[in-house]
Simulated scan of single mutants.
Amino acid sequence: MEFEMKANTSDRRLTIDYGVFLVVVVSSLLFMVYCPSLCATEESFAGKREKTQYERRLDMLAQRYSRAPAGTVDFPKELMAIDYINEGYSLFQKSEYDLALKAAEEALKCDIKSPVAHELSGDIYYLKQNLVKANEHYREAFKLEPVSRLKDKLEKLTRETEVEKSFDTVEEEHFLIKYSGNQNEYEGFELKTMLRDTYREIAKELAHYLNHKTTVLFYDADKFHAAGNLAHWIGGLYDGKVRLPVHPRGFGEKQLRAVARHELTHVFLDDLGKKKTPIWLHEGFAVYQQNKIEPLPAASLRVLKDESNLIPLHSLFNPTVFESHKNDEQWMGLFYMQSYDVVDYIIGRYGVFYLKQMAIKFSEEKNAEQVISETLKISIEKLEKEWKASLASAFL
């Protein structure tokens, strides 16, 4: 998520020696005849690929339950389903969506009336942009357990389905891109190139690459806020998918690239932290990345000049405090700028590597005090004191 901030404001010819070509072809044929074991097909190499630790864990579950038929005293099907659901949620948090779906499917084989397994399946299909299958599973889960959480997911899905039904689709190595055909100034190729370049830059900086495709949706400006029922000041959103508005008034290509970089940064932090990276780190680093494309106006940072206005770091790092203020536009503006400046200070003093390590530490379900102490070898109080000193010198 990010605030929409206004700035004050880059014939080759092929010649073949047929004699050499003939020798190469004949040699290759002889090699395949006499060395068939070395000429494995791509499929056979894939078959010999070493399984990941997550695949092996699923195999272990299957082996455990293959000893006796489901539903026996030793292997009651409901408990088998719970095991697969737990494994599925663990894989989901690690962004192993295909394996998570496989676990959910196994859970449903054991217990077709499990609302949790249906909801998990719905969540995965939703992120994979299979809205029809997501709808099926959410509805089945809601029939089995009519709770408000599932009702909200169904309502959100209904809004999005209506808005996105006419979207064009472009696939890329790292993205599934959906965009409105009304966006005449942008073709799918241009959007794909912009996202690919942004992905490569962030991946290189973090030395981290994603193992899944991310769905990115480009909305017409007038439909962006309606599709997600979003506050007017939100200029982009990451909620498991990246959502970006195209061509609001005064919003050009540079701004689109800046917002795209902001939201894609969330995808990387979500992956590094296994969906446990705190909001201040998410937003601070996302604004830091956005700032590389479209520098923040000096006026937006002046809110940090008066120390009495600052959010204490213990509160900044507390997710409960954020939840209680997230509808306060003025407080959110301060939260974004302060998170950015704290992250900028940490990177300036320690480097991006340590910021990456912090996200990884958060994946271990440690709190901010533990993560900062273990990673930066400093207390929150000491960090706050040093950061404020850097602020004071910056405003001299």
Rank of each mutant, 00 (worst) to 15 (best):
E2K: 13
N8A: 02
L30H: 06
P36D: 07
G47L: 08
K51I: 05
Q53C: 03
E55A: 04
Y65G: 05
L79Y: 15
L79M: 15
F92K: 01
F92R: 01
E105P: 01
S114M: 03
V132I: 14
A134D: 12
K143P: 10
P146T: 06
V147H: 11
S148D: 15
D152Q: 15
K153N: 09
L154Q: 14
D168H: 13
E171D: 14
L191M: 07
A203F: 05
K204M: 05
H212M: 04
H212R: 03
T215V: 04
D222C: 09
D222W: 04
H247P: 15
F251P: 13
G252T: 08
E253M: 12
K254V: 04
K254I: 05
R261Q: 13
R261I: 10
K274E: 11
Y288G: 07
N291Q: 10
N291V: 09
P295E: 04
L301D: 02
V303F: 08
K305M: 04
S308Y: 12
E323S: 10
N327V: 00
W331G: 09
G351Q: 02
Y354I: 08
L355R: 07
S363M: 02
E365I: 00
E365D: 03
A368K: 07
K382R: 08
E386N: 11
S393Y: 15
F395R: 00
